[in-house]
Each structure stands twice: as C-alpha cells, then as structure tokens.
C-alpha cells in the first residue's frame, strides 16, 4: 500500500474510528455501571454502526456516481436521454429529501414490498439529485473553458478531451460535495431505520431519545459522528482515486 494512503488513513482516524471506539467504550461503561454486560452493549453498538454503514455507503456511492454521470451528461449538448435524466434529477432534488422518501418506503413496505431495495433507493435518490446538481454546471463550464479551446487548438480528439478534461471537471465538485451528501444520507438513514424498525445507529439514537436516556443516546451519537467522518474520508479517497483514473490515467 502506498505510504501516502497509509498516512491519509492515519490522518482521518481522530474523526472516524476514534469516535466510534469512544462510543463503544461509553456503551460498555454505561452498561457495566448499571450491572449489565458491557461487552454485549459495546458489541450491539458496533453491530448497529456496521448496519448503518452498510445501509448508507452503497446507496450513497451508487447514487452519487450515477447522479454525477447523469448530471455531466445533462451538461453535454445536444440533449439526449441521459441528459434528460440528469435534468430531471436536478429539478427533483429539493423535492425529495431522504426522510420523505423513507416515509414513502415505509408506506410501501407496510403494503408488502421488500424493505432493503426500497431503503437503499430512498437514500440513493437524494444523493443522485445532489450529485447531478453539482456536476451539470461544472460540465457546462468545462465545455466553454479556455482549457477546452486549448485542447481543440492542440488538435486533441473529442474522446480525449471528454475523458481527461470535461469529466474530471464535472466530477470534482461531486467529490467535494460528498461530505454534505453523506450528512443528508445519515439523516435519511435515521428516518429509514426508525420507520422500518431496522437495527441501525439512527434507530438506536432515536429510541434512546424517546425515553429520554442520555446514557443510551450519547454512544450512538458519537458513533454517528464517527460514521460521518468515515464517509467523508471515503469520499475524499474516492475523489483522489477518480482523479487519478480520469485525470492522470492513461
């Protein structure tokens, strides 16, 4: 593994694994103080963290990836099917917060639909809208930029220009805005878990809050903060990788 990647991982620890570990330790201490099994409590918190991560990360990555491509496509003339998808996502973005989609998903599950795909869709769609909204203006700007005129003047073909100039330019703001999308997705995940009675961190937090238990909610909150940091780090690592692949790669 390259040294920079290791260093980057170490840099992110205070904001990622440390809060999660602290949350687990607190859960253990609280359970131990009231005479319950501390180990079970800590294990429960970690399991909930893993569940929420599995719920959020794939939806977020898939949503942001597809949204970014659709948004970039929408910035490309002439109008095409993919472009219209991007436009639709951009227009629908503010209409579709994750928690509202979670409620719709809950409604569908009550009438017999499968929970997992709906939960993922409820989290992926807002991420896609957000990514499309960021990618489209960046793509349009790249297509009218001085750099594009330079590439034309230097005789590069459209494919090279699109791959090495326009696409990286369109994806850059999406990876930059990944942290915001991750926060929205965590809020949406809390609604999904709470409404569908799924065993995630959000449900843990809200259940503890409902009964007014600080000692129950605090570990969950710390783990959620760590999870937010983890997703942010994931986003920046992904951004770096994408930049290497699209910008610098052959």
């Amino acid at each position: 593994m390259p040294r920079t990647a290791v260093r980057r991982l170490i840099d992110t620890l205070p904001a990622t694994l440390l809060p999660i570990a602290a949350g687990a330790a607190l859960a253990w201490a609280v359970a131990w103080a009231v005479g319950l099994s501390g180990l079970d409590a800590a294990r429960g918190l970690l399991a909930a963290t893993a569940f929420t991560l599995l719920l959020v990360a794939p939806a977020l990555l898939l949503g942001a990836g597809l949204g970014a491509l659709a948004g970039a496509w929408a910035g490309l003339p002439p109008h095409s099917g993919g472009g219209w998808t991007g436009r639709a996502l951009i227009a629908a973005g503010p209409l579709l917060p994750g928690f509202l989609l979670a409620a719709l998903a809950a409604l569908a599950v009550r009438s017999g639909a499968a929970a997992a795909p709906l939960a993922w869709a409820a989290l992926a769609l807002p991420a896609a809208c957000h990514a499309a909204r960021l990618a489209r203006p960046a793509m349009s700007a790249a297509l009218t930029s001085d750099a594009l005129r330079m590439a034309e003047g230097l005789g590069l073909d459209d494919r090279t220009v699109l791959r090495h100039l326009a696409l990286p330019a369109a994806l850059a703001p999406v990876t930059g805005g990944f942290a915001n999308a991750a926060l929205s997705a965590l809020a949406g995940a809390t609604a999904v878990e709470s409404l569908l009675d799924l065993p995630g961190l959000g449900a843990l937090l809200i259940d503890a809050a409902r009964v007014g238990s600080l000692s129950g909610s605090l570990p969950a909150l710390m783990a959620l903060c760590g999870l937010a940091g983890l997703l942010r780090a994931l986003g920046s690592a992904l951004g770096g990788w994408l930049q290497r692949v699209t910008g610098a790669g052959r």
Partner: peptide, 15 residues
C-alpha cells in the same frame, strides 16, 4: 458543519 447536526434536534427534544 461536518457533524450530523440535524440529528441533534430530535435528540435534544427527546432528552
């Protein structure tokens, strides 16, 4: 801004 502040609201209300 980097923290899930939105979740502090239901938590605070509950507590």
């Amino acid at each position: 801004v980097a923290l899930p502040l939105a979740l502090l609201v239901p938590l605070g209300v509950g507590l």
